[in-house]
Design a protein around this nucleic acid. Sequence first.
DNA 1: TGTTAAGCGAGACGGTACGTCAAGTCTTTAC
DNA 2: GTAAAGACTTGACGTACCGTCTCGCTTAACA
Lengths: 183, 183, 183, 183
Amino acid sequence: MARASTRARVHAAVLSLAAESGFGGLTMEGIAARAGAGKQTLYRTWSSPAAVLLDALLEQSLDAAGEVAVPDTGDLRADLETLVRGMIAELADPATDRLLRAVTAELQTDPAIGAEVLDRLLGPQLRAIADRLARAAVACPEDGAELLLGPVFHRWLLRTRPFTEDWPSAHVARVLRAVSSGG
Amino acid sequence: MARASTRARVHAAVLSLAAESGFGGLTMEGIAARAGAGKQTLYRTWSSPAAVLLDALLEQSLDAAGEVAVPDTGDLRADLETLVRGMIAELADPATDRLLRAVTAELQTDPAIGAEVLDRLLGPQLRAIADRLARAAVACPEDGAELLLGPVFHRWLLRTRPFTEDWPSAHVARVLRAVSSGG
Amino acid sequence: MARASTRARVHAAVLSLAAESGFGGLTMEGIAARAGAGKQTLYRTWSSPAAVLLDALLEQSLDAAGEVAVPDTGDLRADLETLVRGMIAELADPATDRLLRAVTAELQTDPAIGAEVLDRLLGPQLRAIADRLARAAVACPEDGAELLLGPVFHRWLLRTRPFTEDWPSAHVARVLRAVSSGG
Amino acid sequence: MARASTRARVHAAVLSLAAESGFGGLTMEGIAARAGAGKQTLYRTWSSPAAVLLDALLEQSLDAAGEVAVPDTGDLRADLETLVRGMIAELADPATDRLLRAVTAELQTDPAIGAEVLDRLLGPQLRAIADRLARAAVACPEDGAELLLGPVFHRWLLRTRPFTEDWPSAHVARVLRAVSSGG
DNA sequence: TGTTAAGCGAGACGGTACGTCAAGTCTTTAC
DNA sequence: GTAAAGACTTGACGTACCGTCTCGCTTAACA
């Protein structure tokens, strides 16, 4: 397995390269050169630039962002709205936008990446939201979480239309109605 | 502009190549060779393999599949469930799966592709669903359509969990509750 | 086939590199870089650094040295001795020595190189000597030529012992006796 | 210096590898792996795969094959013809052919290899033939041995033309004439 | 109808990156 | 405390495509 110092240099290299030239510019060759590492060293551990980047991101932000922070003030409606508005704001940041789009694209092709993203990013996020819903006595918290996030991703990923200022509150209202008692 | 016969040969070539080796295996060089065309001829008209493929697909299926068929039996709940089950079945087909994933991935990178897909595939689909909802006197049909499709795409694209047999009906029930009177 | 200007640049590159760093330092990559050519351009025409070098050498010296000059003063013994002394002198030159050794080594491995060398260097040389012998009414000129050159190469290639000043005349005498009347 | 058991394992490894994949396939890495030794252990004692192989060969066959057996029935002509035919037969064996070509090629590059080969293979061979000639009262036995072997090697190494059935006897006749009384 | 420019096939070209291999050096582990 | 195991940097390998660029050869439209 790779030595710790090697991993660190590679992580630094991939992050700096991604920051400079975007995800599309990442190549194994370039990462190796920037890291002062041999290509074989990279291939020994990672299978593609996306895998390197993902690993770097996860290592970097594991504890901090790994714990997807779902607010819990007791007011479910307000909490979900805060969450949705936060996500939209994050997606509006060009850096995050480019990065998440790249990961999503890669994820379509490489199932291994997909599994890792699910394990360490999406899964926790969905679970955290589901937990918040469960704490509010919602009947089907997993489906509720999906109902909350699905349209956000759909609109963002497929660029169907921009987010408007008042959409989040209306969206949360619909989601809450969807999972309310009658369900 | 390319001659009609050239276009036709290129379209045939890209479709057969995509069918054989998947989207990832498409290259301008390969398409040109299969089509018996020069590379320059391709570059004169299209900028990437994705553009060629998309053009071929749209030309092939524009009128037929372009008209997204949303059933309208009068029973909204049943119609939407039929629609959702149909989509899920389509996504389960390996060929469709690969193709749509590839287009989605490409769409993250190339805004021109994105615009074309939105114009000619997603837009009509969303509008057709919204129309169906509007005909059932739903208040916010666009948001309803998004609420219906978003979770399906979310689960499929991000591979969070498989679709189960009874999920569609529960999902449709939630969506209908979401857009009911209060919305 | 390669364009003339490309060939010329590649030939110049390989000759200058060989002069600077010796044959062992030749790589396809290095030649391509020096020539300002793509690697594929090299591989399209030549299969190895040795092939490039050989081609350059042959093109360079084709007419001049291609015509292996066997002296013909009428005095066969003197002519052959001149020839042998000339060869020994040439082999004593470090540049020629290194180059011919390299070609000989490569020739063991790559049959295509061998065929080319035979066609354009060794064949003509042997034939020229055989012709000279034939003109002197020697019965088996090809075998005579081999008898003349074989021991020279043997001693030089295998470094069995150095050439001495009086060896050529004794050697030629033996060869002439070998192919005389009885042969 | 390497331990005896290590040397033995390395020798076995290099011989088996050479037998399987030919000389060209030998690498320090492969030998080390096959021998169950570290690469460093190899480099400590040998400088190249050729050195390892040569060492193994010489250790294996020193006394046995080192004594080049030149027949001595009293009939010099017949003995030399037997010898030549034997050499040609040996060179016709693909395994011997490959091995000797490889050693010859290596010998052009690495003078140390050359010296060792001369000392322990070629030298004894030439000396044995010279001795046989001397025993037949030939005046210049070393030159005679060279005259006998030179053309064989020349034709084989440079692949000028194949050996024919009746060439050995004619060749021996010429060599004997060359070194006869007149010389 | 005969000319002439365009579109075209073919593919060489300078490049970049690929993923692999082996070289030779180094560190770590374990006997 | 020596050597195995093997990670490391380096650099060449040969291949695949990239996008650009000549080359003739069609071929359709205009003179």
